[in-house]
Simulated assay, not measured.
Amino acid sequence: MKKILVTGANGQLGSELNVLSKSYSQFEWVFTDREELDLCNLDNLVSEISRINPQIIINCAAHTAVDRAESEFELSDILNHRAVAVMAKWSSNTDCKLIHVSTDYVFDGTAATALTESALTAPINVYGQTKLAGEKACFEENPDSIVIRTSWVYSSFGANFVKTMSRLMQERDSLNVVNDQIGSPTYAADLAQAIMTIIAHPNWQAGIYHFSNEGEISWYEFALAIQEIGGFDCTISGIPSSAYPTPAKRPQYSLLDKTKIKEIFGVVVPDYRTSLEKCMSLLKE
């Protein structure tokens, strides 16, 4: 029985993989978070992974606090880059399959059409820079790795835009939401399913893949969809990013092209609205 190690188990994607693992009982699953596997302790990381001895690693762990990353470069670099290099090297040495999750923030946001895997990377914040360094380390240490870039992740688990908006729409009469950043949300349950489709596929094909839900929307339009599905009575106004300054710059346009992951692995990509309705009905329960 193959053993799958999932890092970042308490995050949104790790939690969704935990739910999905019940349907994949042909694998032995090991879910770890900081307590069970401290990725910041680089000196012990090899011996800790060796102790678990997985045949597949799904690395969901990351320093994802985008604004905090601006002042926490060292922590971001360890979690998003250097720990990834250790995992990739270990995987290469032991013939273990590695799936590493990355981000649309590796792009500068100046594109006007959906970004393919070969589009030029040029991150504009520390989070994006350290995640790109992690991607590169992955392939330097283990060319057989798979990297999946995703965007705007939400789930019924953890803290995210959908849960924050749902709460604020019930607490406030009006909200301002940025309307000039364009992309597509990703329901973490759909990403978890995509990862398992890849693992179950007979042909492992290393490389970079893009995954988000279908649709091209702004955060403002995303908020309007949340409002409509939730039936919230709140006035929502669109504002430019310049009216809402943050420590880290955000890409203005980061819509991901999903053609490659569909064609190579037969991954099904649901529309963002369908998935949002699913997630919000779970939240209502």
Rank of each mutant, 00 (worst) to 15 (best):
E140K: 07
T186G: 05
F232K: 02
M1G: 05
A112D: 11
L39C: 11
G11R: 02
T130C: 04
P270A: 13
Y154P: 02
N44L: 07
F27G: 05
I199S: 13
P54H: 14
E70D: 07
N142Q: 06
Y272H: 09
E285M: 07
S118L: 11
L282I: 12
V84F: 00
T150K: 02
E263D: 15
P123Q: 07
W152A: 14
L283I: 14
V66H: 10
E228F: 03
C96Q: 09
V6K: 05
A206F: 04
V46E: 14
R51M: 14
W219P: 01
S145I: 03
E221A: 14
I226G: 11
I56V: 15
D38P: 00
L17K: 04
L39Q: 06
L276P: 05
R167G: 05
V153C: 12
I182H: 06
A133E: 00
A248Q: 05
N213S: 13
E135S: 07
C96E: 03
P54M: 12
L75M: 08
I236W: 05
Q181T: 14
A9P: 01
A83Q: 01
Q129S: 10
T103W: 03
V153E: 07
G266D: 08
Q252P: 00
H63S: 08
K22T: 11
A65R: 01
D144H: 06
T259V: 13
S21V: 05
T110L: 09
N176H: 06
N10C: 10
S174E: 13
S242G: 11
H210T: 08
S92H: 11
K260C: 13
C96A: 15
A137I: 03
F161H: 06
E16Q: 08
I199K: 12
P270H: 09
E70M: 05
